[in-house]
């Protein structure tokens, strides 16, 4: 589904990704955790074609859509228009621009359809950002910082939607998260990215038992100690 091999990305002379390889299988949910500045957003922006890699390859089997860090909505446009623009690439296909497709998955959005996106709460905006990405009918959804700045209940709601989407449509998910516990809960596999390289990978269960991961990302407790 997604196969990234030896990806190198630079900003001028600064190397942000230094030989990153990872895979996401069909319908799989995979987490990518790592500290600030590790290169997580750089990776998704390269997957989306915003940044050009110096070397390495990206193979996507199907369509990839990104929910960018910090939502990045069009604040003056209505929720419905934000959604409609998510379908830009497939705009000529009949019905592609109709936001009602998304209201079936994220029913809360229908109430806010006419509101300017900039006037919504953080959680509502994240919902719009997810919906806008879904308008592209992605086979794989790359979510950059799902929980950033959101209350736990709101995050739980978003997580539930991602699970449903994965179960009902088989949409694969690459989840980038600061909250490693949440990421390990939701995804069966995970990668740890540090200073532009993948330092650990494996099943979420394995990783959450590792001391190094626990120290850096789970507040010092391995999952078995925590429970």
């Amino acid at each position: 589904m997604l196969e990234v091999t030896d990806l190198v990305v630079r900003y001028g002379n600064a190397t942000a990704l230094d030989g990153v390889s990872l895979q996401v299988g069909e319908g799989e949910m995979v987490a990518l955790v790592g500290p600030n500045g590790a290169g997580k957003s750089t990776l998704v922006n390269t997957l989306s074609g915003i940044l050009r890699p110096v070397s390495g390859s990206i193979e996507v089997d199907g369509r990839l859509a990104q929910v960018p860090e910090g939502r990045q909505l069009f604040p003056d446009l209505s929720v419905a228009d934000n959604l409609r623009l998510g379908a830009w690439r497939s705009r000529r296909r009949a019905g592609a621009r109709d936001p009602r497709r998304i209201y079936e998955i994220l029913p809360d959005l229908e109430r806010m359809a006419k509101q300017p996106a900039g006037t919504l709460s953080g959680g509502q905006q994240q919902m719009v950002a997810v919906g806008r990405a879904l308008m592209a009918d992605p086979d794989i959804l790359a979510v950059d910082e799902l929980s950033l700045g959101l209350a736990p209940l709101v995050v739980a709601d978003l997580v539930r939607h991602l699970r449903e989407l994965n179960a009902s449509r088989g949409t694969a998910v690459l989840l980038i998260e600061q909250n490693a516990r949440l990421a390990f809960d939701l995804c069966e596999r995970a990668y740890v990215l540090e200073s532009g390289t993948i330092t650990m990978s494996g099943s979420s269960a394995e990783l959450s038992r590792s001391d190094a991961v626990a120290r850096a990302y789970l507040g010092g407790l391995t999952d078995s100690e925590a429970s």
């Binding site: 960018p68 990045q72 909505l73 069009f74 446009l77 623009l85 830009w88 690439r89």
Partner: peptide, 22 residues
């Protein structure tokens, strides 16, 4: 119009517009 909204989208957030393929 859809095209007009895409123009407005570029004006308000060029990065997000590019993500959408505009």
């Amino acid at each position: 119009t859809y095209l007009g909204k895409a123009l407005s989208a570029c004006a308000s957030n060029p990065y997000a517009a590019r993500l959408a393929g505009i």
